[in-house]
Simulated scan of single mutants.
Amino acid sequence: MCVIYDINFSQARQFTDTNIFIDILFAIILSPVIETFIFQTIVLSLMREIRWLKSKEFLMIILSSMVFGGIHIIYNGYYGISALVIGIILAYSFILYEKKGINAFIVVTLIHSLLNMTGIFLSLFN
């Protein structure tokens, strides 16, 4: 058997009874607000300041999601890869809702919160 890349799935964040309230508060409220501000609002705004990049939305989405995934890889490879995919969804949503004139920050923060809530819910039954 040839192992190309070994990802340790067991090191993903586990929730315990002693810290569940703090974990839920952080994962559902604080992280989505802070991360949406940093990885979508700031990163995408900075990219729009780069003349050759501002008209390339697809590239901006990919780069933003790579930064988002890169910061989450500290947990493990699986976390980083899944955060990369989620980052694509969040960055695309941010750009889409900005174009529609809807508060993209609020929408993306809510999407992020729902994704984190799903993760917490699934980890409780794991």
Rank of each mutant, 00 (worst) to 15 (best):
L46F: 13
L115I: 13
Y92W: 14
I73H: 05
E35P: 09
F121I: 11
F105D: 01
I62S: 00
W52H: 10
A91Y: 08
I22T: 07
A12L: 13
I7Q: 10
F105T: 03
F125D: 06
C2P: 09
Y79F: 04
A12P: 00
I29T: 10
S65L: 01
P32D: 06
T109R: 04
F37Q: 07
G80M: 03
S113P: 03
I20M: 11
K100W: 07
L53N: 11
S64C: 10
V33M: 12
G77V: 04
L124G: 10
S65I: 01
M117Y: 11
I20K: 05
K99M: 02
I120N: 02
G119M: 06
F58R: 15
I24G: 07
I74N: 15
G80T: 07
F125R: 14
Q11S: 15
F21R: 09
L44T: 10
Y78M: 04
V67F: 14
Q40E: 12
N103A: 06
I42L: 15
S31H: 06
S65M: 01
R13A: 08
S93I: 03
S31I: 13
T109L: 03
N19Q: 14
I29H: 02
R51Y: 11
N8S: 10
L46N: 07
M117T: 12
L110Q: 00
A12N: 11
F39E: 02
Q40H: 06
N126W: 04
K56G: 09
G87P: 04
Y79Q: 15
G77I: 07
F121Y: 14
R48H: 08
T41P: 00
L44Q: 12
G101P: 11
G70E: 03
N8I: 10
I38C: 15
S45G: 13
G119E: 10
